[in-house]
Amino acid sequence: MKPAAFAYAKARSLDHAIELLGTREGARVLAGGQSLIAALNMRLDAPPLLVDINGVSGLDRIERPDGQVEIGALVRHAQALGSQVVARDAPLIARALPHIAHPAIRNRGTVGGSIAYADPAAELPACLLALAGEVDITGPAGRRTVKADDFFLGLFETALGPGEILTAIRVPAATPQMRCGFAELARRHGDYALVGLAACARADGAGLRDSRFVFFGVGATPVRARKAEAVLDARGFDGLDEAVAALADDLHPEDDIHASGKAKRHLAGVLLRRVVREMQDPWA
């Protein structure tokens, strides 16, 4: 388990990082290294050059622009977990963070790395999608912003192009009307989810509107349960059984080492019930 030889360069600034990434085809950003280095050690991946962005200043801030929460790419999971701003204004993310790995990994692993890596069973990509957040990207052609809905394209595949760096994610700040819910089933604490659900909606009287229920661990990307969302938006909590049934159309999980696709779909239904009940009565 020794990686193939690679070159290493430490970027001094964002521009420098982008310049370095342009010097070698297949060059890769090194953030917390918690996913990348393991892949290199197992020789599942052999990039010629790693561009270390840990020295780039300004990427590790949690900010509160108007109506939004912005989390810099280099913010460590542990830092986000300890943040008052995240706890208050991005409660869904605060709920998800303790499920990510273990303290040692959370000390190094970054929010940007999780989103960029886009593991289909990871928590943060699902949260970003549930919150209808967006992603800031800087690359050789300058800056651009991509909506979460357009960011996760396939298995470990995102809208990030060659030489591009994810610099921050932004999500709407919580409002009194916002309801969110989170649940995850993992065989052991800290494992990637067997099945997970991150959800967000607007409370409207007794019902929910604009709901976004995003399952993870059930497909190649985080998956929105659009049919179930539509049922819940239309029928409210009375439609729960129907919404669970609609998951049969929304989710097509495949068998994996820990559970059959069939079991995963069953578990998704259990999580949907639990999360909806929780969103119905957030003080329960």
Partner: peptide, 13 residues
């Protein structure tokens, strides 16, 4: 005894 194995025993999957 995996979760799947328990669900099978209960006839749920």
């Amino acid at each position: 005894i995996t979760p799947e194995c328990v669900l099978r025993a209960l006839g749920k999957v």
